[in-house]
Design a protein around this nucleic acid. Structure first.
Length: 195
DNA sequence: CCCTGATTCGC
DNA sequence: GCGAATCAGG
């Protein structure tokens, strides 16, 4: 596969939306995430606003330079003082389904359980996402949890109707993507009231 | 181990 | 220009 105009366009679009290189590669098909990343760099639209993981590139000594390092390292100049305000954009237009059907409030019996999304102010999208993924949750028991399973508790620990999400976690986080969304608030909720 | 992006360099 | 291999980090 080659980088046709429309494929590049899709790449730009998805990258702009914050999609990961692997997701983009999967979407495009016929290319690996490496190819996507390589293309992204070639296009010059590498660093995204506070996304990704590393975001910093340091020159490291090569472990085994066969022939010898070439003095062509331009030391990527970074002409980005910080002129990207990165305005908050309205992502999901839909997602208007019922949220939290009958979530009985749980009582953490001495367990350091994460905060439950009850009467709190959480993004409607996030809540919708959660109720959505809880449908296909693995419903794992405490014993079944691993380093890579979402540890978000659902239900009342005092009843049989209690389980952990169990979906694959993202990177290092204790919860899956959806639950991370409700567990860690961006800190900027509708706090300012226009009056 | 899973994932992420970043970089290098032969092609 | 392309992208696999490799690296670095969560």
């Amino acid at each position: 596969m080659s980088w046709t105009d429309d494929r590049v366009e899709l790449l730009k679009k998805m990258w702009g939306e914050g999609q990961s290189a692997s997701q983009i590669a999967k979407e495009l098909g016929g290319v690996t995430r490496n190819a996507v990343i390589g293309k992204v760099h070639r296009l010059g639209l590498s660093n995204r606003a506070g996304t990704g993981t590393t975001a910093k590139a340091e020159p490291k000594a090569k472990p085994a330079p066969k022939t010898e390092a070439k003095p062509k390292m331009e030391a990527a100049a970074k002409p980005r003082p910080k002129a990207e305000p990165k305005p908050q954009e309205e992502p999901v237009p839909e997602t208007r389904l019922a949220v939290m059907p009958a979530r009985a409030k749980i009582i953490p019996a001495g367990q350091p359980l994460p905060p439950q999304p009850s009467a709190n102010e959480i993004s409607p999208e996030a809540l919708a996402k959660v109720s959505e993924i809880e449908k296909k949750a693995k419903r794992l028991s405490l014993m079944e949890l691993t380093e890579r399973t979402c540890k978000w508790p659902v239900g009342d620990p005092a009843t049989e109707d209690f389980w952990f999400c169990g979906l694959p976690v993202q990177a290092g986080k204790p919860y899956c993507e959806a639950h991370v969304g409700v567990a860690f608030q961006p800190m900027s909720s509708r706090r300012d009231r226009r009056r």
